[in-house]
Structure formats: C-alpha cells, structure tokens
Design a protein around this nucleic acid. Sequence first.
DNA 1: GCCGTTTTCGGCCCGACTGTTTTCAGTCG
Length: 587
Amino acid sequence: MTNPEIARLLRHVATSYTIMNEAKYRFQIIAYQKASDAIDQSITEITDLATEDNLSAIPGVGPSLQAYLSELVKNGKVRHFEEVMKDIPPAIFPLLDIPSLGPKKAFRLVNHFNFTNPRTVIADLKKIALENKIALLEGFGEKSQQDILRAIEEFSDGVNKVSRMVLPFASELADRLTDYLQKSPYVEEVYALGSLRRKKETIGDIDLAVASAHPSEVLDYFTSYPYAKRTIEKGDVSASILISGGKHIDLMVQPAAAFGSLLQHFTGSKEHNIHLRELALKKGLSLSEYGIKEKRQEKIKQYADEKALYQSLGLSWIPPEIREDTGEIELASKNELPRLIELSDIKGDFHIHSSFPIEPSHDMGKDSMEIMLNKAKELGYHYLGFSEHNPSQSKHTEKQIVSLLGKRKEFIEHISENNKGIRVISLLETDIMPNGNLAISDNALEYLDATLVSIHSVLGMNKLEMTKRVLKGMSHPKAKILSHPTGRLINERPGYELDWKEIFAFCRSENKALEINAFPTRLDLPDTLVREAINSGVKLVIDTDSHQVANMDLMQYGVSVARRGWATKDDIWNTKEYDIINKWLTS
DNA sequence: GCCGTTTTCGGCCCGACTGTTTTCAGTCG
C-alpha cells in the first residue's frame, strides 16, 4: 500500500467517527486526521517503516496507530477500522473529494437517496441534482443544489486535481497579483504568505495578506481581478477567487496595527499555528490572527510587527521556512534556533553545464564558459565549477573520450588565465552505470579536479541494488559529490529509493557531499532528507545545475531547501573559501 | 488517539464564510 492510500484510509476512519458521533470522538478524529496528514507528507514509505518497526518516527502516530498500521501492512486490513466503518455506507467517501461536501452532508445525501455504489456515486448525485431533488431536502436548498452541481462540474474538469505549482511559477503568479493589488489606493501593504513564504517545494493556493483600513474596498477590488473566473467567497475581512488554470487565491485584510498577527497567522503552517496557540493557552493567553487576548478578557493586544508577536509568547522570531512544528518552537523558547544559511553566504556553484563541445551523453549547455563566468562574477562568486555531462560512451572510443577531456582541460586553463578574478574548477557530471562503475575511464578522469556523479539511466532498480550502485560509484577517489541524489522530478516521477542511513554514514566517513540541486523541478535532496543528512554529520553543496546562464539565478531555490532542512552556513561546502574547497575536492 | 521544560493524566487552536436557519451547522484553512 502506498502512503497516499494509507493516508486516505485514516481519513475515512476519521470521517466515520465524525458521522457516528462527532462530539464523542472529537479527539480521535483530530488524531486520525493529524496522522493522515503526516503520512501524506512523509517521504519514507509506511510499509518500510512498519517492517523496520519504526512507525513511531511519524509524528502523530502513537501506540494504537502503530499497532493498526502494522496490522494493515501485514494483513492488508485492520479489524478495528472495519469495526468503526461497518455502518458507514462506502459511497460517501468519493463525495468527500467534492469541495463543500463534508462528512455530514455526504452522509445525508447518500442515506436519503440510497446511493450504494462508490464508483458511480458522483454521477448519481449529479443526476439527482439535475432532477431538482436536492433542493427539497431539509437543510439543503436551491443554492446548495447549484453549488453541488458546480462543484461536481469543476471536479470532473479536474479543477481540484491541478498539479501543485513549482516555486518560480507560484512566485510569478503571486507577483502579478501583488502588483495588481498595489494599484489600489486602499492597499497599504501586500504580501504573499502561506506555503510560498515558507518556500515549500510546491505550492497549492496563493495566500495574500493586505494591510488596509478599508477592507471592503480592498475586497471589491480583489474580486474584480481581471483574470478571476469567479468569486468563491467574499466576507468582511477575507475573500477567495478562482482564476484560470483552477488556482485558488485567498486574501485576508487587517488594519496595519494588526498586520503582524495576520502575517504570522497566514504564513502557517497549520501545525505551527496550532502549536503556537496551545503554547499561548498554557500561558493563559488566546492567540488568533487578530492578536493576543488574556483569557476571559475582551481586550485584544494587536501586533503590527511579527517579531514582537513571537516575543510576547516568549519566543525568538522563527524563519518562515522552518515553521512546520518540527521542534522550532521549543528551540525558539530557549533562543537556540540555528542561524540558517542565506543566499549571500554562497561563494560558488559546482554544477554548471557550458556549451563546450564535449559531445555529452545527455543535454549540453547553451552558453559558453566565458558567459557563465561573467555571470558568476556578477553574482559575487569566488569560484565556478564546470560540470558538463561526460562524453557519450556509445559514440566514442575511450581514446576519443580521453582526448576530449584533454582539450577541455587545456581550454579551462586558458580561460582561467583570462579570468583572474574568479577561480575555475574543472569538474564533470559523470554517470554511475548500472553496475556501479563510472561511465568514463580513470585515464579520462585524471584530467579533472574532481567529479560529480549521478544516476541517469536504469532508474527502476530496487532500494538494495540502487544503494549498492550509488555507493560503488561514489567510492571512486575522484567522485566527491552525489548530484540530485534521489533522481526525482517534481510532478513527474518520484525518484528511486536509497538506504539513506548507509549513504549518510558513507558520506560522513569518506568526506563526500550530497547535492541540493536548486533546479525548481528537482529540489533534490528534498528538505526533510537535508535535515536528516545534517543530523548525520553529512556536508552538502547547493548547485543550480544550470544549462544556460539565466539558470544561475536559481540558486535561491536551493538555499530555500537548505533553510527548510535547517542548514547553517557551516553545513554547506560552497559557502567556504576557494582554498578550503580546492583542498577538499582534490584530496 | 496523542503527548509532556508546570502533566504518564488531562488536556487538545481559532476564526471566516455560506446557506438555511431565526440562532446555527457545516465546511474550510
């Protein structure tokens, strides 16, 4: 069973409890939903964790759920879950995917109209709605019926299934919206918050916060956005619109005096906010997006500034990238948060594909080494490493490959002479073949300072074989960096499995680095593995994998991943001076 | 059902918006 399937099953148990008796099972419902969310977000397979008896690694999975999940992995079913769900008609579950339908409404519809087939229930409901039968139901009306019809329509169109946006795309969209909003005279300040501010690898909705003394004018202006398909909802202080492409944009407005509270609230994450509010409760306070109230008092203390809000709770300000409730609040209370790496700490990039005619096995870069060096100087880098793909094996003899790399070495020495302001490092991105050997011979590798190694073919190997392959490839003395270590492509493919414990232990003892590939569709290592790597004492590099000069600006996204993985400057090789780098790479 | 720098028992975030109500339930973030 996959993680999404398991998460879905837990959600169904929570739904069943809600229908049975929401008040009685209130906290079980929360617990099941929380565990479901955690499993959805987990990058390790629950089936693996169950086999390794390590389910407690998932936050929100306690003794009971550990036992149930073990049973699920072993037997494919859980007696307790079946008991809970035995009186719940299975046809309600597909309806929960339709926005505006929750457990209560879905149950009433399924019960009243006697829907029994989960496969056809959405079509069945549509038919009933078209026959004008929902409007007659108590608690429903003409409007609900129309809403349900539209929701089914949009669901069938895949509006809710649109893949999550990669960061640059979401940023651009948010910029267009903030530009639009800034043209309103009523808008004092506007920021994009939510997962975009936390720099998550993919973004679902765009969340915007506006400081204004005139909320209704701002909301009118917002809902008249020229590219809005329709207004989803609109109240006194917030509104949502649907834009073309099926994206939701949510906007909240607060007066400037309370804007800090709104920034905090709307940045999230949900888990971080809940923990913060629980912390406030323990101090006899109540926290919301409006400010902080003393318990049983009406008066609310507003915060214009986010930092002051955190301080009122006895916390240092927490960088948005780590607001995920994974220990940041505890450390902030002791003022012990690490100082996260910043873009300005970066002194170079090791993964640059130039247009040097090396006749590579994979795609070649578009711009010359000179153009890319000039860009590196603009970025204030101290050094730049060229890492074209190795010459294709199938099209060359070994002798030809050695000759190509010889010529490249000469050329790099030549441009080094002409570019005294920056150090040029001669690297390569060498394929690790299925048998673990590197794609080119030791004679050819001799022409390099060091090499990145990576997997580009035969991705379907199992975890054990792939780990063996990667470890063998990295064992070569010239191999220093494992590039895009998981091989995932965001929204395209999940990447292969590796035994990370083994990889980390190897990197640490052999002084090899893992790459954080900054390319927005890679962001590989993923943030959670970055954090585990650092905790295991592994050093990392952040590279852009640029195939043209414009790509070199993508470094910021790699830094975001590093920050989300709690990396400090010390954890990242390419924050260090050239002499240190050179010594490491050529050791 | 989970969890612990006031707790292994006794807590568990807070509010907006909508539609169908005439004071609120359901859904969502």
